[in-house]
Design a protein around this nucleic acid. Structure first.
Ligand code: ZN
Ligand code: ZN
Ligand code: ZN
Ligand code: ZN
Lengths: 149, 149
DNA sequence: ATAAACCTTAGAGTCAGGTCTAAGGTCAAC
DNA sequence: GTTGACCTTAGACCTGACTCTAAGGTTTAT
């Protein structure tokens, strides 16, 4: 049986975070001392490590709640339920990557258009692009060949 | 001179957001009626549109504060200051993309390993990977050939 | 003159995932 | 038998960018 600070040392999660996870139903300590001290069994520890691993991969705490309820009784759940959660996460990640790649493209075009030199920004094409209505997007489309889409 | 709801209609930013931007020093109305109603001049409108365009590209409100102070007196600022901000943003975006791509890779490996079928999750390799200490990462490294890095 | 549609402010709430504090109780070692 | 390290709780605070509410004041059209 580990005390919370020992579990913290072992998992790398702060005691604050462990209590936070408990409050949100992700983990628990199977025993408490008379004074209320949390004591974690091996089973508790494995659950915490499951949460930490899932969190590290990028699952949200809500995703992890779903995964944990499957974990609690695997025989009553299917592989498909697991892949559904995983695929939903992958779709989120892909959507976010696409947004960021669009941002990157725009930023790169802006950088390519600016001299970046030490002289006055009165002629700066980045500033001009930000002034102009949707100009950056238009320029981006032109460069990428929007009609090839 | 536009009233706030007219500016809202024109820019697509809510009146709440416009007031929020004002409170944070991004924009302002150059006139107020006796009762305190905001009235926006063409110059004000262009500033709001600048903010909206920069926001749309992905700059944070703090980035935009910096860009606005350059915009206010371009002759006292250089192209380099502008590219510094833009490059910093690009670096942030690239870092975030790298994180997400790592997540994507892990999720894809998990999905590849699981049958995704309707039978019991007792044998589910995704669940196993989440149970096992760092196993997913190890598997990922193996597949990608970590020694080739 | 009155109703609808607008405007004002300060301040609270939202999301996620923590992070920290205050005020106090407990336990081990010396 | 007391120091110091640990533990407990409820609840406040943080980031960022909004979003909304309450309670009231103004404008415009009829
Ligand atoms: Zn230049
Ligand atoms: Zn420039
Ligand atoms: Zn299966
Ligand atoms: Zn499976």
């Amino acid at each position: 049986m580990l005390k919370i600070s020992e579990l913290s040392a072992r998992t790398g999660l702060s005691t604050h975070t462990l209590r936070y996870y408990e409050k949100h139903g992700l983990i628990s300590a199977s025993e408490r001392s008379e004074a209320g001290y949390r004591y974690y069994s091996d089973t508790d520890v494995r659950r915490v490590e499951f949460v930490r691993t899932a969190r590290h991969i990028g699952f949200s705490l809500n995703d992890i709640l779903d995964l944990l309820s499957i974990r609690l009784d695997k025989s009553r759940h299917s592989c498909q339920e697991v892949t559904d959660i995983t695929e939903a996460k992958l779709a989120e990640v892909n959507a976010r990557i696409a947004e960021l790649q669009s941002m990157r493209q725009t930023l790169q075009i802006l950088l390519d258009s600016c001299c970046g030199g030490p002289e006055s920004a009165t002629h700066c094409s980045i500033m001009e692009a930000l002034e102009a209505e949707q100009e950056a997007e238009v320029e981006k489309d032109r460069r990428l060949g929007s009609d090839a889409r």
